[in-house]
Write a protein that binds this DNA or RNA. Structure first.
Lengths: 219, 219, 219, 219
DNA sequence: TTGTAACCGAGACGGTACGTCTGGTCTTCTA
DNA sequence: TAGAAGACCAGACGTACCGTCTCGGTTACAA
């Protein structure tokens, strides 16, 4: 979530040779300053020089450890990301309950203005730099995507949902909607909208009943 | 789609007073050069000066008529947008057929590399400038959204789909997925994925049958 | 003093042919606006567009009649130049009296802040455009120079001053000093300094007293 | 003569603190390019961007160390100014000999087309920016002025010239004439004219012969 | 204990693009 | 046909950042 991308200190290539160690204080100051400035200026008006100055750090210390503004922003946002929605959905209730609970928690973050601003920043970063997009996808979206897909697969095994559906497409529709509301359709995201979408999707996933008995929820 | 944003010459405020008229040739050269450069450089590396120079036009002529790079890009892309998907879906067949045909046509555009590049550019433009986002939403997304929603409402009146569903959320999921694939999940959009999502959504919208016999499509 | 240089309407070439006559009101408004703006902005920050706008005139009307900013400024300043010091020195008194009176009158103008500002403007105009320099020399400096030289020549004929002196160099020293004080040495011009210089020059011009002992050089 | 004006590194305030040192190579390249371009284009058509490009330097490097185009020009010209005429006149001969020799040397510079062009440039710079005028006066004119005045004072003490004359006004007439010839009356400067002026001035300064008859004014 | 190598802050460097302003030209409408 | 209006192409202005490169100084392992 916060290791530098240029020299990822994976356990192997650690060269403990002489020389001063990387300053953790600087790293934290940079990421923290970045989060502050995203809130104040937005991604586009954010500048490396501005981050350095706010963090009380030399520009080179940023360039030494991150390859681009986008990557700094990615790390800054990822570092403070709620661990909750990076964990997979619970498996304790019905698929409807578990998915709905997880998506609600995520949506609540998208509704918070500060976090929504960070989401937008991270989206801008991804859209102007493929490497940043890659990193964010790996560290953020893919984790959520896999977790949700796995929960749906489990439901399929349990006979709760149709096993032949394209769970990837379904999950993309959920996550894509959230992103879309926060970026293209700003200000419009509501928990109610999320629920409405889940209503349709979950109904569409339900196994075709020979004789559809009492409905689950909103019917 | 191409009127200047600073002084939209709506039929009323035409002041035929003295002074040279706006050059249509320059306007077209600017928008055309912008489209070319989006393809060559992408949105971020696009510059007003570069557009002016490619178009053989003074920078002031751009600044006179557009308030920002984003707006130029918006107009440039909108001007060449296919009229097809700005028209509403057909109403001749089943809701399934009509919606699927319309979404396929749209998706085909998102798959085309040149047009996908423009979509990405326009998305970047929107994400760095609220005014541009507003304009694009009004002229592009909202038109599509309204068209699709209306088609679903018609289907509801015809008893084809559940009348109590949140059509807005459903349509956002469709359009959001396309955007999401083209921006965050690049290179992954396929007609098959689109179809899979439509399968689930349309099934979820279908009226709950007391006794649902033979299935519609992919069952 | 104020005729345009492009088409000097000397009595002969007046072509009363068809078409609207040149607007005297515009001409005066331009020159007047120019004088105002010189006072407010100085020559360098003065612009043709600014003059046109202040005068309520199209830029083309200026370009039609004057070839450069410098020429407009030259005409604007010349138009209001005091006729006094464009007349030759009086010939009624001693050379000392007549020259001193004339130079005092001129110096009084150089001391006035508004007029000094115009002198500086006209000097800037001359130094960036040879044609303007030429025009100003002909219309302004040369008239003064010739008048003063003639007065000294008259004095030489009357035996008041040495006939073999280089009157041109002497006059250039007087006029050059004034210019120098107003441009390079700003704010320092005083009537006393002018008088001091005249003391030395006039003494130097005085005919050699009968018994001039050992001389330095050219005696 | 060449220290930056924004942070004049007077011997005391040297702060050897962190940060890259100013590049002497860039400073010299800038001043040298400026001199070249003055010769090719003249002061008015000279541009900061042009200097930067010719010097192979970023514009910021110029703006960092000089506050205006005029100051760059002032430093560029001052750096190459002949040390000769910034030294005071000799004191070895008669005042006539010493002053004439010094003025001849100066005038020879004003006659040289390259140096005359620089003088004109520096004059333009001074006339459009008071700070530049101030700097040039301090570093150039005042040095010459003081040197000449001191030589005349020495002559007064030696009884060679009248002690009650206004030496400042006399020196201004000499230097002002040179400037005037080079700027307003271009192309006219000749050593002969200079000598003619010196004839008159030095004669006017000479001590009054014993039997001074009726005088005009200040005697 | 002392090299010495990497890190740190500061900030100057060569550049690119910005958005504004001006210059001079051209076009359109009015008088 | 002149004049007012104002759009046009061109390009300089001074600013802000970019990403790189010294600087002097500070750790902290290794000899």
């Amino acid at each position: 979530m916060s290791e530098p991308s240029k020299t990822p200190p994976t356990s192997k290539d650690v060269r403990p040779g002489p020389g001063r160690k990387r300053s953790e204080a600087s790293r934290l100051a940079i990421l923290s300053a970045t989060r502050e400035l995203i809130g104040e200026l937005g991604y586009e008006r954010l500048s490396i020089g501005g981050i350095a100055s706010r963090a009380g750090v030399g520009k080179d210390t940023i360039y030494r450890w991150w390859p681009s503004k986008g990557m700094v922003v990615a790390d800054a946002v990822l570092e403070e990301a709620q661990p909750f929605y990076l964990a997979p959905p619970a498996r304790g209730g019905s698929v409807d309950q578990d998915v709905r609970a997880w998506v609600h928690a995520l949506a609540r973050d998208f509704v918070d203005p500060v976090r929504a601003g960070r989401i937008r920043a991270v989206t801008s970063a991804a859209s102007e730099d493929p490497a940043t997009a890659e990193r964010l996808y790996e560290r953020f979206t893919q984790v959520q995507r896999t977790g949700l897909i796995d929960r749906l697969r489990l439901a399929a095994e349990a006979g709760e949902v149709r096993p032949d559906a394209d769970f990837g497409a379904v999950v993309d529709a959920i996550l894509g909607s959230l992103m879309y509301w926060v970026t293209a359709r700003r200000a419009d995201l509501s928990i109610a909208s999320v629920d409405s979408l889940l209503d349709v999707l979950l109904r569409g996933l339900r196994v075709a009943p020979e004789s559809e008995p009492a409905d689950g929820r909103k019917a």
